[in-house]
Design a protein around this nucleic acid. Structure first.
Lengths: 192, 192, 192, 192
DNA sequence: GATGAATGAGTATTCATTCAT
DNA sequence: AATGAATGAATACTCATTCAT
């Protein structure tokens, strides 16, 4: 039986290889070698190279949604919820640096190729953000003149850029400090 | 000059083709056809395919820096400077949608491949942002506990994500409204 | 016996699959599925893919030789014998259309690859024809200036081409009419 | 400019390679090497491997039709016309043995794959035969109870089989003798 | 300078065959 | 004996790059 275990192993290997070389520069044989399977084995689990990339998003972003979603439920205050989300996202990206790079680089490629995709799994992730904004607006904590979709896009863009920048200059700043700065800028602004 | 003219023509064509198909899916012959030159001609002006992409950044981002830099000089108030930068960036990205897409998608690929690159021409662009922050901190307008590099990255990430999102849902919001929302969030925060 | 039974089942399946897709386009897994066995099982009965094709000829042509040989024995007149052979060959090819196609298409491929092969089992079949010619010459019914080997090849070529053509336009002509026309041309000629 | 000369050179090479190894066993690089061009060059002239095979038929059979057609025009007697056709076909197949093998083996594969194909260029060739039969029937030389399409198929099958058999045992019989025997069987029959 | 035909290295994918269960 | 997941060799085709004209 084709094991779910091997499926995961290949996804994991692909995430690493795609992060290091980029999707287009990565060879199937690189992924196979990293996963310690034969080239042909990959095609027992995936239709083609691109399907592997889509599955990376599907599976890894799915796990993100579940994990972060659960932790956010415990918090009801919108302001604290947003601060928590920022913290969790950066934490997860730090833990899974390969995924961070694949999201940062390949997700954008992919979005172009599969216009609908981003509107599926990844959109679900982005909607965690907009729902926090909406909640805050409903409870009067956040300004009601801000468009949740714009804020969502803005926050994701900021976080994504930071998550890569952060890993590149990782020793300088603690994750708490960066999270705090981002939340501060977003919530109370830059003004003195 | 004839030569510089053709150089620009190829850059322009490449920007369009790379934006539409992505760097890896674009063929040299696509660029050649778009620029209305023979395939071989391209190699009289560029060393290889990747060199074209680097030149796109070099030239187009160079023009951005010059253009936006000049306009920013006329403004001395840091707060207004930042608001103006946000506005100008979005405006330019709207005018040159192909460049916006290439920056959004290919710049990230490229950054990985040429680690030093971003520290050159594009870094110069990003530093426009951090210098505004620093100026604001020096004049006491902006909080001094914000790291200019973090703010820079955050602002670019937000703007870049919005500039693509904006063009996808372009009819809904005016550029002024979006600019205003971004500046608001950044400067006075989300809080009511 | 269980084993010989499965051997036959695979041959039968292979004949059908090879006829439909052609030997090179057919996959072992196609044959396995058609025979309702696992891919690996096939290798318990055959050495490799090509061996299956050879076995198709070996077994199916063997059955032909036996069947047609027996019926021909009952007839002693060379002229009637030849007429009967034409009829029987077309009849068998009509009954087993898959075999007809495999002989028509794959036998020729195979003959090239295994030069000696045709001189074995299939040659035996062809020699049924030449022996009828020789008999006819000995009894003075057929002209003695005809080379039996040439006549043999000519008759097989004609029959084989007709047997495929026949199935493609099957509704138009009855098998008796076609047999009669062929025997007529061969024996009394086209002349009025 | 893509030269017609190189197109022909590749066709010629492919005919030889396909004849020797068979279409499926032949590699594009074999054809390229035989034609003394690079692998990629082949794709400047043909869409894919199969397209080369179709072009072989298209071009070589086209030449056959033209050549044989011209010579047949000079003869008006149906009986002599048929005898001449048999002779010319065998002569051409002897001259271009590679084509003979490709027709003998690959045409049958191909007919299966491209049902309509045979009804185009090759059908035109086969119709030379049936038109001779029809002519003979109209002038009362040939029996009117013979179906031209059946006779056509029969004659082609016979000739094709003989043309391969002939080259395999070439030293034994002269082409005139074989032609004469075939024409004899076809026209005056086997009967003494 | 300009061209575009020619090159050939590079790789995703297939599928006959094997072998642990 | 039977299975079917795993293997990895094999190859059609692409496309960046070159160079003779």
């Amino acid at each position: 039986m084709k094991s779910a275990d091997k499926h995961r192993k290949i996804i994991r290997a692909a995430t690493k290889v795609f992060a290091k070389k980029g999707f287009f520069n990565a060879r199937i044989s690189d992924v196979a070698k990293e996963a310690k399977v034969a080239d042909g084995t990959i095609y027992l689990y995936f239709n083609n190279k691109f399907d592997i990339l889509l599955s990376v998003f599907e599976q890894e972003v799915g796990k993100l949604i579940e994990h972060i979603g659960q932790l956010l439920e415990k918090e009801s205050d919108p302001q604290k919820k947003l601060t928590l989300f920022v913290m969790l996202h950066l934490e997860e990206m730090k833990k899974n640096r390969y995924l961070a790079e694949v999201i940062h680089v390949e997700l954008r490629q992919t979005s172009k190729l599969v216009k609908e995709y981003r509107k599926n799994k990844f959109n679900e992730y982005l909607n965690i953000i907009s729902s926090i904004i909406t909640l805050g607006q409903e409870t009067g904590v956040f300004r009601s003149d801000i468009r949740p979709e714009i804020a969502r896009q803005l926050i994701f863009g900021a976080l994504d850029e930071i998550s890569i920048f952060y890993t590149e200059v990782s020793s300088q700043y603690s994750i708490e400090e960066i999270s705090s700065q981002i939340s501060n800028i977003m919530q109370t602004g830059l003004l003195a």
